[in-house]
Nucleic acid binder design. Structure first.
Lengths: 252, 252
DNA sequence: CGACTTATTGATGCACTTCAAGCGACGTGG
DNA sequence: CCACGTCGCTTGAAGTGCATCAATAAGTCG
């Protein structure tokens, strides 16, 4: 059974057996972390890279008034802070949502890998750039989409990302997020998240029972929120020749 | 007269004379671009890195309903897409706000520089990570702050970033953004942006005349929106020992 | 079983959007 | 040179989408 990281990198570029062995060496020392535990906090100096092998985590900040803003979700196979060594200190927190299996990778191990395995190095780069692209899409999501499409879009993204690491069966996947988590992610109140989710259920797009989310009609929910996965830059995904829209034709 | 890039990198780590010369070689071939011109569009394959030497540009997407979402502002000294080669095609557009002096840097030049100048390589890394940190802060801004603080926060950030490249005198700087630009940046309507800006003027925090913005009371506007520049990771900036807030104490 | 968190639902209010109209600055062409 | 169109800013009026407050129900964990 291959771990989520190898599966994820493989979805970008085919890995050799040597590459795989090197990755296996990276993830030898895993540790189990409970739910709602901080892996690293704002103000601390980053020592290790955190890799999530199992479970869900997130990146977040807390504003002076106590408001929490979640900026990213981490799913199995995701690095939390791959290149963070460059910066002197963390400007945000990283905490678990559900119990997680985590690997703490020292900087030296990353350097050694990138020195010897160009394929992996390239794949790491790809990870970092995709993470940034996801962050951009979240900004678009919060800034530009109405709440119902906003939440649907997040669900489509999670579905796609989790599918790439084999965590989806029959369009169902583990969904440990509370409605408060979602509210703090989407810039909405928990009450409104509740009503929006019920709307998505009523439309027959999803079901959500016992922390398991099922997408009932993948095509319809993607159409519903205009989900295009191009920003995830997956190898096997193809979508129509969607031409870009420029400055000129701003209105419809 | 040193250009904005050298000045910016120097604000991170002191550069040697050799480093400076190498950077000067990078920015030899500049070109002038008008306002509201796309430098690169969604769907295109990235060929060159774009560096802004003078003027303002932005990163944006256009949603199916015609809504534009701006995801980043570029000021003098900023790379638009430093590491974008890794990805097959652009997932967003980059366009100018004002007329700009731009350098198109081919991938090879970047590779040569990073192969020979470790200081510059490290500084480039720092640029990329700070850009990402800024993006995160924008997400917090849109998701978590009320509109008045949201706009004030953007102005504080611009002030700080422009100061680092010598584009601020007497707390005044060029401000070519229209209120529609700001609206598409902040996830607000242009009407509300207008009223909020008038509020900031009425509070005596700013003036805005002939595309020049002046911050009348830097300390007060920073306090007004709880601006902390730690996410910009500037060398010379120091701020109090702001301890991080964690999961536990969520409410105030 | 009891304490606490999470989900749900209703009622109220206001912050924001939308629509609309007027105004000044600017550029272009007749 | 003036007429006209466009664009950005401003302001008013009206409607509503979302937050806030509150109270109950349903899980969940010790």
């Amino acid at each position: 059974m291959t771990h989520a990281l190898a599966q994820k990198l493989d979805s970008y570029e085919a890995l050799s057996d040597q590459d795989r062995w090197a990755l296996d060496g990276l993830v030898l020392r895993t540790r189990q972390v409970g739910a709602h535990v901080d892996l690293i906090r704002e103000g601390e100096a980053p020592e290790n890279v955190h890799l999530i092998l199992d479970g869900f985590a997130c990146r977040y900040k807390v504003l002076p008034n106590g408001q929490r803003q979640i900026m990213a979700y981490f799913v199995p196979g995701d690095f939390c802070d791959l290149n963070v060594f460059i910066l002197d200190e963390m400007d945000h927190n990283i905490g678990t949502i559900s119990p997680c299996r985590v690997v703490d990778i020292p900087r030296r191990s990353i350097d050694e890998i990138t020195a010897r395995y160009p394929n992996i190095t390239k794949a790491f780069w790809w990870c970092a750039l995709v993470d940034e692209a996801v962050l951009r899409e979240w900004l678009v999501n919060i800034g530009g989409r109405p709440p119902n499409q906003r939440i649907a879009h997040l669900l489509c993204e999670l579905h796609t990302r989790l599918e790439a690491v084999g965590c989806v069966t029959d369009n169902s996947f583990s969904f440990p997020f509370t409605q408060i988590d979602l509210a703090d992610t989407m810039g909405l109140s928990n009450v409104h998240v509740n009503r929006t989710i019920r709307e998505l259920k009523a439309l027959g797009l999803i079901t959500l029972k016992q922390r398991t989310l099922t997408i009932l009609d993948v095509d319809r929910i993607k159409a519903y929120c205009h989900f295009t996965p191009n920003y995830l830059h997956l190898r096997n995904t193809r979508w129509g020749d969607r031409r870009s829209v420029s400055w000129i034709n701003r209105e419809q």
